[in-house]
């Protein structure tokens, strides 16, 4: 809003926002009341008032009582729309549900739940984080709706999207009612995975040895085993299956015996962030291959394990490396 900037309204609005947020403690579920709903005429509302003024001049100068009547009808509509716009937010329950992890550079998603006041409709509710793109929804047929809101994740670590702004101009666009809510939601932002070669071995460490081998894609094939339910699709020997010999799993040497370590110390030292990105890439890669691996970074050692929950633990450690003081 350019005229807003020109009038210094934006700065004022920032002050109002922080004052408003200070007044209310952080809460998972917030019911909107007159204490936290702010309402001001929109740009369209201001021009509507100018129109009313012109109509009043017309009525006065032509001594036309019907024009007076029309002017007053529109003025009453303006006043009524204050109540209408306010009522469109009032009574609404906003619940912060969850934040969803993402990689740095992507959009972090947050789920917010809206619950309509009993027996009332709420239309054209627009929700956004500061600087984010707004999502608009109606609560007319269903009482409860979940909204997915995104916020750009620029850096790894915890992402706090800031206060949630809930705004509406319904029904006539003459007034803008809004509120700020400190949802307390946060999302974990993982380092951006960067495809890279695994580092060369520097000692007699078998872990890195096998790491290198995997990186080159040359694996020691051992034989087939019968398929058991729960095995990864990556391991199925499709060629064998195609020959009509039933489902089998390819077995590689080292998958069970040789644990892989993603070790900070052995990673090529370009920068911390690049190193984290590389490790992150390999953590994803190894999980996809159902490889057991451990993580060793300064301040955190995770013993070798496999599976999705292990990956999430590793990714969290990577995301929060060096940021533990935060949140």
């Amino acid at each position: 809003m350019s005229w807003g900037e020109a009038l210094g309204i934006n700065r004022l609005s920032h002050k109002l926002r922080s004052w408003s947020l200070r007044r209310f403690p952080r809460d998972r579920t917030v019911t909107l009341t007159q204490k936290r709903i702010y309402i001001l005429p929109s740009a369209a509302g201001v021009s509507f008032m100018v129109l009313l003024l012109l109509l009043l001049l017309l009525a006065i100068n032509y001594e036309s009582n019907l024009t007076y009547g029309l002017t007053f009808l529109l003025a009453s509509l303006l006043i009524l729309s204050i109540i209408q716009t306010y009522a469109n937010l009032a009574g609404l329950e906003v619940t912060a549900v969850s934040g969803h992890a993402c990689y740095a550079g992507d959009q972090a998603g947050f789920t917010v739940e809206l619950r309509a006041a009993k027996g009332r409709d709420h239309e054209q509710l627009s929700l956004r984080w500061d600087g984010g793109t707004p999502r608009t929804l109606d609560l007319t047929n269903q009482r409860v709706a979940q909204v997915e809101l995104s916020c750009p994740a620029l850096r790894r670590g915890w992402l706090y999207p800031g206060p949630l702004k809930l705004e509406t101009q319904f029904p006539l666009g003459l007034f803008r009612a809004w509120t700020w809510i400190d949802t307390g939601l946060r999302a974990l932002v993982y380092p951006r995975p960067l495809a890279c070669r695994a580092p060369e071995s520097s000692g007699g460490d078998g872990a890195l040895e096998s790491n290198r081998v995997r990186a080159q894609g040359i694996e020691d094939f051992q034989g087939f085993a019968r398929f058991e339910s729960g095995a990864s699709l990556h391991q199925i020997a499709w060629k064998v299956y195609a020959r009509g010999q039933g489902l089998h799993i390819k077995q590689y040497s080292g998958t069970a015996s040789n644990d892989v370590w993603l070790d900070w110390a052995h990673w090529p030292a370009t920068s911390d962030e690049e190193r984290l990105s590389g490790i992150c890439y390999w953590a994803i890669e190894l999980t996809q291959r159902e490889q057991t691996f451990g993580l060793r970074i300064p301040g955190c050692v995770l013993v070798p394990d496999s599976g999705e929950s292990h990956r999430l633990r590793v990714m969290k450690a990577l995301a929060l490396y060096g940021l533990e003081g935060q949140g």
Binding site: N65, Y68, G69, F72, L73, A75, S76, L77, I79, L80, S81, Q84, P171, L172
Partner: peptide, 14 residues
């Protein structure tokens, strides 16, 4: 609905 609701206020103003 809106116009009907604002009618009484219009009368007062008029």
């Amino acid at each position: 609905r809106l116009v009907a609701l604002s009618f009484p206020l219009m009368l007062v103003l008029f």
